[in-house]
Design a protein around this nucleic acid. Structure first.
Lengths: 225, 225
DNA sequence: TGGCCGTTGTGAGCCAGACCACGGCTAGGA
DNA sequence: TCCTAGCCGTGGTCTGGCTCACAACGGCCA
């Protein structure tokens, strides 16, 4: 297991060395190739996963086949915990956006950790609370912002988590097609493309396949609010 | 304190008598009149509340003054816990929709309960997980469903929680104006009104001030999906 | 090296739903 | 008893964004 990344994961950052090592040992490792599905919406399952490398998308699809992405998760982030604490089938499909590896923990194993160590419980609670807050923000954006605004916001979020600052701007290799970006902001691919083209024509960013270079963070942020 | 309602609250349903009584004693009671605000979005505060009587709305407002309701909370439901585990200002404004009373618990008091009793931690986790699942559902609805569909879904949810079955249908005294209902589903009052009028003209329900009587649950449910 | 499939760019038309403008109804207060 | 302030009901107009349609551009495999 890649203990370094696990140690940095928000959930375990408060553990001491000995506890972290023990935890690392009780986790199993999984690997996926780009496009592989880890589990489907509706599956049963009670494992929690932490990304150690790569990116995944959490998505759900409507009865008529349209898709919607709830989140993109990168190294250090946790998912699959809903089915643990609120028993029921998986509420989203998880697909690898790049080749990716995860550590996983089963329900029973996690409970052992929970009962003894209040700090783990608090870590989980704050993790869930953060997710809930974010989800509420997404709701507000869907209600209040137009598509270009939501695209700008999504780019800023991706930049924040996956961006590398260079002298010509912030390089964001988000690894998403415009179709996926559209599903993430809840809009059509065409509209997202037009918003991106508009931002590019204003000189706020440069478009590259599955990535963007943000050249004017300031203006982009202003458009996002 | 109204211990009966607290005992029924999902959060504490797993506690034994002695623990529940002790907990009840460590909670303070608050009362509000219809329209009163408990706290505003952006306020600081670290109290968690549980509704013992009445209803409140959790809302947020955009920079240009428009409003959006995240949820309606009734007896037994908990709110305000986000600021506890994910420190930061309150993320929503809480307003009483009817006269209402609450039990409240401060951060410090809650932590005492948490560390000793794994069951309380699990209760909180499952509570939060349920909320997150619901919030994700709302996102999906905003992306996939049209306004009438979202209105139908909201009515069914309210019926489920506040409805009383009588021989002429399910009476739902939701205590919301159509304006508030509109904010809850993320639409304009006019559109919501037209959707309701349409449902009524089909004989699926009867409209009354701040309440509806659902006469054909079957059809309404079908319209909601 | 040519064909093909996944992805990106862009224009045209259409429609759900926001916004605007009323008019009527009811409840509570002077 | 009247007057005012919220609500509720319903039309008309306008537009953001979805759908459809099609072209251009790689990469990748045969």
């Amino acid at each position: 297991m890649d203990n370094d990344v696990l140690r940095q994961a928000p959930l375990f950052s408060s553990l001491d060395d000995e506890a972290a090592t023990a935890l690392g040992n009780s986790m199993a490792e999984t690997t996926l190739r780009r496009g592989d599905v880890l589990f489907h919406e509706g599956d049963s399952g009670d494992k929690l996963y932490i990304v150690t490398e790569g990116k995944v998308k959490l998505g759900r699809s409507s009865s008529d086949g349209r898709e919607n992405l709830l989140a993109i998760m990168g190294p250090g982030q946790m998912f699959g915990e809903l089915s643990l604490f609120d028993p029921g089938p998986r509420s989203a499909t998880v697909t690898a956006v790049t080749d990716a590896t995860f550590g996983s923990l089963s329900h029973d194993d996690l409970l052992k950790w929970l009962d003894g160590r209040p700090m783990v419980a608090r870590g989980l609670l704050s993790q869930l609370a953060g997710r809930l807050r974010k989800s509420n923000d997404v709701v507000a954006d869907l209600v209040f912002s137009d598509v270009p605004g939501r695209v700008a916001k999504a780019l800023l979020d991706l930049a924040d988590r996956f961006g590398r600052t260079a002298d010509d701007g912030v390089h964001v290799h988000h690894d998403l097609t415009q179709e996926e970006l559209a599903q993430l902001v809840g809009a059509s691919r065409e509209t997202v493309n037009k918003a991106l083209a508009d931002f590019a024509s204003r000189g706020w960013l440069r478009l590259e396949p599955r990535s963007v270079v943000i050249m004017d963070l300031e203006r982009l942020s202003r458009r996002a609010r």
